[in-house]
């Protein structure tokens, strides 16, 4: 402290280093695209139907040469429109067919599936694409310590403090030789093991939380007995958080879930830092 005073003589009163802490806001970014809201779903569906209705006819003669086998296969796979016949009453309006397409409706194109012999190498290529489920095993058993839960959401690492309850991991500062971001990164590795790959966004602090006797106070409070927590933003890229101390409780939570874990004051003070997606 004496040393620091000699370097920066302008500071009138030195605030003890013990009252400053470095807090880490560690995020796991979404792995899949966000879930659509019901409104978004119906709107996108409406737009797609409109677009398909107004789309030009598919020029099949360009892609399949006349008289070839592939053309025959393609034509056979199409459902084909209802054609206009003399003396027939059409309930849904007279058919208007050009280039094998009903002009009043959207064109539905069926891609013919190639038939292959059993055990053929083409089988592997022609197999239907089955996407992986967006809901994982961790979601089903509701394992909050897993990094594979809630794939469309950003998750944040929370740690249960024996005294203060659930909060972002926070680390004390021993000396001023290391920046706040380094303190946070090193503290995380001490707590959760070395096998974790993180990317620190910046060495600049994101926000400050001020506490007075373990109670959160307003950010513009400037009493002398405050404990300050400087928040550093970081992202986890690979590896996992495995606490050395097996008693330590931790959780990866989305913004909504985080609300139920932390106190109301704490959530209101950090809410704008958390992503809605």
């Amino acid at each position: 402290m004496v040393q620091s005073r000699s370097i920066t003589p302008k500071v009138k009163e030195t605030i003890p280093l013990e009252s400053l802490r470095s807090t880490l806001l560690l995020a796991r970014n979404p792995i899949v695209t966000p879930d659509l809201t019901p409104f978004e779903k119906v709107y996108y569906n409406y737009q797609e139907e409109l677009e398909r209705r107004l789309m030009w006819t598919f020029p099949q003669y360009y892609y399949f040469r006349k008289g070839t086998l592939s053309e025959r296969r393609f034509v056979a796979a199409q459902k084909g429109p209802v054609t206009k016949q003399p003396g027939v009453f059409y309930e849904k309006g007279k058919p208007d067919v050009v280039h094998n397409r009903e002009r009043r409706l959207k064109q539905e194109i069926v891609i013919p599936r190639q038939e292959t012999e059993e055990g053929s190498s083409l089988d592997e290529i022609n197999r239907p694409v089955i996407p992986n489920s967006r809901i994982t095993k961790a979601d089903e058993i509701n394992d909050i310590t897993s990094l594979e839960r809630k794939l469309p959401r950003t998750l944040y690492l929370l740690i249960k403090d024996s005294k203060l309850g659930w909060r972002l991991p926070s680390f004390s500062i021993e000396n001023t030789s290391k920046g706040l971001n380094e303190v946070a990164e090193e503290g995380l590795r001490k707590l959760g093991g070395e096998a974790i790959n993180t990317w620190n966004v910046s060495n600049t602090v994101t926000a400050v939380l001020k506490f007075q006797n373990d109670k959160l106070v307003k950010s513009d409070d400037s009493s002398s007995d405050l404990t300050r927590e400087y928040i550093i933003k970081s992202h986890i890229l690979s590896g996992s958080f495995k606490p050395e101390d097996s008693n330590l409780e931790f959780a990866w939570l989305s913004k909504e879930e985080l609300k139920d874990y932390v106190s109301e004051d704490y959530f209101n003070a950090t809410e704008f830092l958390l992503s809605d997606i």
Partner: peptide, 25 residues
């Protein structure tokens, strides 16, 4: 978020100048 960042840095400047300088490298 910008406001919070600004506030935090101003606060850090008044609490510990060395950490502030390191945060600005």
């Amino acid at each position: 978020q910008y406001e919070a960042m600004n506030n935090a840095m101003t606060d850090l400047k008044s609490t510990n100048r060395e950490l502030y300088d390191l945060a600005n490298v």
